[in-house]
Amino acid sequence: MEKLKDALNFSDFSKAERIGLIIFSVFLLTFPWIGAGSFTTTVMIQFLLFSLFGMGWNTIGGYGGQVELGKAQYVGIGSYTVALMMVWWKVPFWVSMPIGILIAVGYSFIIGYPLFRLKGHYFAIATICTSLVLKDIFDNWNLVGAAKGIELPIHDHPDFLYMQFKSDTYYYYFIMALFYIGLFYMNWFRKSKLGYQLRMIKDDENAAESLGIDIRWCKIKAYSIASAFVAVGGGFMAVYNLYIDPASTMELSLSIKIALMAMLGGAASLWGPIIGAAFLVPLDRFLGSWLGGQKGLTGIDFMIYAGLIMIVSAYQPRGIWGIIEQFRKRGH
């Protein structure tokens, strides 16, 4: 009960932020009536999905300060669990998704235990390695469709149990609900004991240890929470796209994107991942469809994208939110 109150309590934010959140929420709720074309709805779904991923990453990467670059493997675990259970045993989404989360969390403990002996660069590269190993395995494993991937059976009628709908609007509201659950959870998380401890670990590991914090265990916990978030998003991807393959769910670039959106928006801030996704997803999509489609301009979209990353990391490592806060401070 207390926790729920904490999760719904945004009172420590400034008035401007709270008003922003309300306007944003109204926009999200009414979006299907005001802005919807099929393209914009797709973009919005992607935006909410990546916000969710980014929020998850923010636990370990933002608050905990660990450069985690292997989140895609958990997207893979989440989506493959849902897809395979549906194809093999016709298990409804509502059963398979929690199982996917459990598998992701279990796997994250197994991997996290050795992983968090490492720090800094060693850790970052190791996370990439673990993700690539899993992708290699799925790429060559015939039972799960290997590199060809798997298609989910399409039902004739909309089916809530299997999360199959005719219109994207339903998917939109579903991912929006997940987004809010994630947001409220993160709002609680940042104020929780673990949240405080992680921030201390990020600031100063030695001091954190001297304050009775079991650093490795804290990191593992945060890592598994992040994995659970990402697995949920992965499960959604399976039922939304109705087709998954290792390239779309476990590619390194997906891991990077997840970390990047949170970083770019502002790591260790509640709004950071949302701002990052709001910025990058449309940029990615519109640049992609606008420039990528034109002959001879392939790659320009990603060059702009990469250029942004470079500029932000060189001039304002705290991301867009860092820039906003800087201005606000100056205003005082």
Binding site: Y196, R199, M200, D203, D204, A208, I213
Partner: peptide, 15 residues
């Protein structure tokens, strides 16, 4: 003492 920018004094002591 590592001079950090991430947490306020109160938050530090709360940890």
């Amino acid at each position: 003492m590592k001079v950090t920018t991430g947490m306020t004094v109160l938050e530090n002591v709360m940890v």
